[in-house]
Simulated scan of single mutants.
Amino acid sequence: MPASVSPIRLTLISAPATRQLQEGIFLGDEGLDASARAQLERVRWTADPGQKIWVSPEARTRETAKALGVNAEEAPELRECDFGLWRGRSLQEIHHEDPVGLRLWIQDLGSCPHRGESFLQLMERVGEWLDLRREAGSCVVITHASVIRAAIVHALSAPQESFRRIELGPLTLTDIRQNGAQWHVRSMGVRLTNAEGSAEHEEPQCD
């Protein structure tokens, strides 16, 4: 890496699971419930002094940032995928009312039967945001598993279908870095430490 190029490190944190996510409901702008807040109380992670903190605009990520004790700047580009007419509705409901649309959505990343945003559109805006990063040093991003999966696919220049094959649990860290020419994935899905400081691991979940 040329001496004149300053490296960039992004630590991406996935927000806790919400009731909607646990119940298989297409996510809207839901805040954190008591269980998620209790999980955050056991987290010992802290940002380094001077780190730039970004957060997606949804209530659950802003509340996560507040619980972690950080002042964050909102980045609309890091918002959750827009599920349009399906927001706040369960997979079971959609399967009953629009089985063809649901099947298309599952099979085709570019499909948008809910009239919101396709996963390909999500990956495009996340990739554009990453490529515009010019802040040298270490930054933190508090966002959603879908956004982090999109960032991983972009960082690796992986096939778009890889998006569906990445699983990330709630309250996990993913570390990606820029060396002046390319992004690299240093680690992914590392769970935040608990109150005793030990690294816990669990089966990953994806949204």
Rank of each mutant, 00 (worst) to 15 (best):
residue 162 S to F: 11
residue 94 I to V: 14
residue 83 F to S: 06
residue 26 F to H: 06
residue 35 S to K: 11
residue 11 T to C: 07
residue 165 R to H: 09
residue 97 E to H: 14
residue 135 E to N: 10
residue 83 F to E: 04
residue 195 A to D: 13
residue 179 N to F: 00
residue 94 I to E: 08
residue 2 P to V: 09
residue 24 G to K: 13
residue 29 D to W: 00
residue 86 W to N: 07
residue 135 E to C: 12
residue 111 S to N: 06
residue 84 G to A: 05
residue 130 L to H: 03
residue 10 L to E: 04
residue 161 E to W: 04
residue 200 E to T: 06
residue 24 G to M: 12
residue 187 S to T: 09
residue 3 A to G: 05
residue 87 R to E: 15
residue 104 L to H: 07
residue 121 Q to A: 15
residue 195 A to W: 11
residue 11 T to K: 03
residue 149 R to P: 02
residue 145 A to R: 02
residue 70 V to Q: 01
residue 9 R to F: 06
residue 101 G to E: 00
residue 58 E to G: 00
residue 16 P to Y: 10
residue 35 S to A: 14
residue 78 L to P: 01
residue 135 E to K: 14
residue 190 V to H: 03
residue 114 H to W: 11
residue 117 E to P: 02
residue 175 D to M: 01
residue 120 L to S: 13
residue 76 P to Y: 05
residue 80 E to D: 10
residue 143 T to P: 09
residue 65 A to W: 00
residue 94 I to H: 08
residue 34 A to D: 14
residue 104 L to W: 06
residue 114 H to Q: 14
residue 67 A to V: 02
residue 206 C to F: 04
residue 43 V to L: 06
residue 114 H to L: 11
residue 2 P to G: 14
residue 143 T to D: 03
residue 84 G to R: 07
residue 181 A to Q: 14
residue 24 G to S: 15
residue 36 A to R: 05
residue 202 E to I: 06
residue 31 G to A: 10
residue 54 W to F: 14
residue 149 R to Y: 06
residue 152 I to P: 04
residue 122 L to Y: 08
residue 135 E to S: 13
residue 53 I to T: 04
residue 14 S to D: 04
residue 198 S to N: 14
residue 114 H to D: 10
residue 155 A to K: 00
residue 172 T to A: 02
residue 130 L to A: 06
residue 139 C to Q: 15
residue 168 L to R: 00
residue 30 E to A: 09
residue 74 E to R: 05
residue 153 V to I: 02
residue 33 D to F: 05
residue 142 I to K: 00
residue 87 R to Q: 15
residue 182 Q to N: 15
residue 193 T to G: 12
residue 23 E to I: 02
residue 33 D to G: 08
residue 142 I to Y: 00
residue 71 N to Q: 15
residue 201 H to D: 13
residue 94 I to K: 05
residue 204 P to H: 12
residue 35 S to L: 14
residue 150 A to D: 04
residue 166 I to G: 02
residue 143 T to S: 12
residue 207 D to Y: 13
residue 111 S to R: 04
residue 141 V to G: 06
residue 181 A to E: 15
residue 133 R to G: 00
residue 179 N to E: 14
residue 43 V to K: 01
residue 36 A to C: 08
residue 96 H to D: 15
residue 30 E to S: 12
residue 164 R to T: 10
residue 183 W to V: 01
residue 100 V to C: 08
residue 123 M to A: 08
residue 109 L to S: 03
residue 78 L to I: 05
residue 69 G to C: 04
residue 101 G to F: 02
residue 117 E to L: 11
residue 91 L to R: 09
residue 29 D to S: 03
residue 48 D to P: 05
residue 34 A to P: 08
residue 198 S to Y: 05
residue 98 D to H: 07
residue 74 E to Q: 12
residue 70 V to C: 00
residue 113 P to K: 01
residue 75 A to L: 10
residue 76 P to I: 07
residue 81 C to K: 09
residue 163 F to Y: 14
residue 199 A to K: 06
residue 84 G to I: 08
residue 26 F to D: 01
residue 140 V to G: 03
residue 49 P to G: 12
residue 127 G to E: 00
residue 22 Q to V: 14
residue 201 H to S: 15
residue 157 S to A: 13
residue 200 E to C: 11
residue 178 Q to I: 05
residue 130 L to K: 02
